[in-house]
Design a protein around this nucleic acid. Structure first.
Lengths: 132, 132
DNA sequence: TATCCCGGTATCGTTGAGGTAACCAGTATC
DNA sequence: GATACTGGTTACCTCAACGATACCGGGATA
């Protein structure tokens, strides 16, 4: 199996929301990373994905299952146990996620700096505007 | 400068909308590709980006300018002329776009096939549901 | 009997990206 | 005077994603 997930592996205040790359829907890339080391249970995923509501996690996993990115295995035990696991297709997204993270490491600071610098100037007057 | 843009370089009916990777907003990656070979004018961009409205193109370019991905140069001629050009930062997105396109070439058919196959089965009954 | 656990549903509301349509200023040309 | 061209702007609307909150069924446990 795999070690327990770090409940702080995703920082909700991290600037990744400013990152100009998105894999799937809002949570898809994070789910892929959570499943990188093996199958995980529903409630196990809710830890690192801090703030995700069960409804949205269900939606995300259903969409990923539909697209062949994860498999869902329900064991007829009780309390119920359901495990999600990456398929080869889902695992193939890891190289993209790594590329996105490499870009962020190398270039996101420049983007954020450009954005910060842009906020300073009020409005550069795009074309000559005459207001009587 | 650069050769005229191919007005059919983006297929509006192409399955890229199903692609689980997005660079920036909806049109950002396409704008980057349009500017790959040199500066372009506003109306020049409207050709390949078929269906984009001037408002949305303005929004897209303003956001890219704010993030330091493009520069905007207005020449005081007339009729007015405005040129947009990639910065080094904007150009750095090309490797990400290439990675996304490589993933699509290699894996998107499998995703679409999984999606198609999933539509066939009505509902696999997630957990036992009892409705009286 | 009561409560907890797990893996969800059901219902409602908010938000923002994106689209539609119309309009504009200044110059040049017919 | 009318029209066209460029590079936009403005007001309005739609729709899907996302979130908040509450609830559920069935068995195990206290």
């Amino acid at each position: 199996m795999a070690e327990p997930l770090d409940p702080e592996m995703f920082d909700p205040v991290c600037p990744s929301s400013a990152m100009p790359i998105q894999i799937g829907d809002k949570w898809t890339a994070m789910v892929v990373l959570c499943l990188e080391d093996g199958a995980r249970r529903f409630t196990e995923l809710r830890g690192p994905l801090r703030g995700i509501t069960p409804k949205v996690l269900t939606q995300t996993l259903r969409a990923m299952e539909r697209d062949g990115l994860v498999t869902r295995t329900a064991y007829d035990e009780n309390p119920p146990r359901v495990e999600y696991e990456l398929t080869d297709l889902g695992r193939s997204l890891l190289i993209l996620i790594d590329a996105a993270r490499a870009w962020s490491r190398d270039h996101l600071p420049a983007l954020l700096e450009a954005r910060r610098a842009h906020e300073s100037i009020p409005r550069p007057a795009l074309l000559k505007r005459s207001r009587p």
